[in-house]
């Protein structure tokens, strides 16, 4: 198991270095030099320009700059935001819990509905239920989520007035930041209304962000289940007199979940990409909104750092999924 882990890690290192190279190249591919790009249309006198070039170390040869960048990044130093002068790492860590909380809720939403729906659709193949689940999931899969989010707001917030339109919690509450997760922090604050407010702020963004993973998971679960239900060992299990429920949950589901697990891992990317849109619409103070704003403000260190950190998260989660894959699939575990 440990050698399996190390082997996976070994494959990831070049990928990770590739990403740092890409992110490093990003700032040097911008037309003009980085300082010019940062200054935008305002222009800058040449003395100040030269001073900034030296300050950022941009006069050194590119390979030196790259090695410097990688070493600094390894220590968590991703530079400072041009707009706020705040450390990029600091800004990221401040905003990450919001995105984490939202993504966690979204994937939970997707899993609790998507997987059972896929199982039921497979079990009742070609029934009305199956067509219903597949139709809805195809629509969800094709949904422009920024529009979907607007429809949700229009209906639940504007029409019915059930849920708030934006933010993480009503302004009257200001729970102390302990974990960064508003649901937990609001509970810790002891104010009874705070948790309810935080939860109600989460509902619509969760649905908006969770819809595509939900649709994908329902489709994948269904097809994985259908494949497994046709296997010889399922027939053999039935021939031993095991109940349909037992065959389904113990024999079929376990095997069907192996490919589904990979799909769950891939959803992390979908969630981070979706967060860009969802957070912008719901004014959710997470890393998605942060990055869109940074692009509009030409805050390149933030864009650079945000991309690097997001990619790191994707890589890390996929490594964890690979590990879990080994746990649930004995054939992989015993590979040497």
């Amino acid at each position: 198991m440990i050698s399996f882990f190390l082997r996976r890690l070994g494959v990831l290192i070049p990928t990770f270095l590739g990403i740092t190279l890409l992110v490093f190249a990003l700032i040097h591919m911008i037309p003009g030099d980085p300082v010019e790009a940062m200054s935008g249309e305002r222009g800058m006198d040449s003395a100040r320009h030269a001073q900034l070039m030296t300050e950022f170390g941009l006069n050194r040869p590119l390979p030196v700059q790259y090695v410097d960048y990688v070493f600094k990044a390894a220590k968590g130093d991703l530079g400072r935001s041009i707009v706020t002068q705040e450390s990029v790492m600091r800004e990221f860590l401040d905003r990450f819990p919001a995105t984490f909380e939202l993504s966690l809720c979204a994937i939970t939403f997707a899993l609790t509905i998507g997987i059972p729906a896929g199982i039921i659709a497979a079990f009742k193949r070609n029934s009305v239920v199956d067509y219903g689940v597949m139709g809805v999931s195809l629509a969800g899969y094709s949904m422009p989520i920024f529009w979907w989010a607007l429809l949700l707001i229009l209906f639940f917030s504007v029409q019915l007035g059930w849920t708030p339109v934006s933010g993480r919690i009503a302004v009257e509450y200001d729970p102390e930041v302990v974990t960064g997760l508003m649901l937990i922090d609001s509970l810790l604050s002891g104010e009874p209304g705070a948790f309810r407010s935080a939860a109600s702020h989460l509902i619509l963004p969760t649905i908006a962000l969770g819809t595509i993973p939900l649709a994908t998971l329902a489709r994948m679960t269904r097809s994985a289940m259908l494949e497994v239900l046709g296997e010889d060992y399922v027939r053999a299990a039935r021939a031993r007199g095991l109940s349909p429920l037992r065959v389904l949950t113990r024999h079929a589901l376990r095997n069907a979940l192996i490919p589904v697990l990979t799909v769950i891992g891939l959803q992390v990317g979908t969630l981070l990409a979706g967060a860009i849109l969802t957070e912008t619409i719901f004014s959710w103070p997470g890393i998605g909104k942060w990055m869109v704003e940074a692009i509009h403000r030409r805050d390149y260190p933030v864009v650079q750092g945000g991309i690097l950190l997001s990619a790191t998260i994707v890589i890390a989660v996929n490594l964890i999924v690979d590990m879990l894959y080994g746990v649930v699939n004995p054939r992989i575990r015993h590979q040497r």
């Binding site: 990317g269 979908t270 981070l272 860009i276 990055m291 864009v303 997001s310 994707v314 890589i315």
Partner: peptide, 12 residues
């Protein structure tokens, strides 16, 4: 490397 970046994030 390209696959490690979430689709819309890479586009951005």
């Amino acid at each position: 490397v390209l696959m490690a970046l979430p689709s819309l994030l890479l586009a951005v």
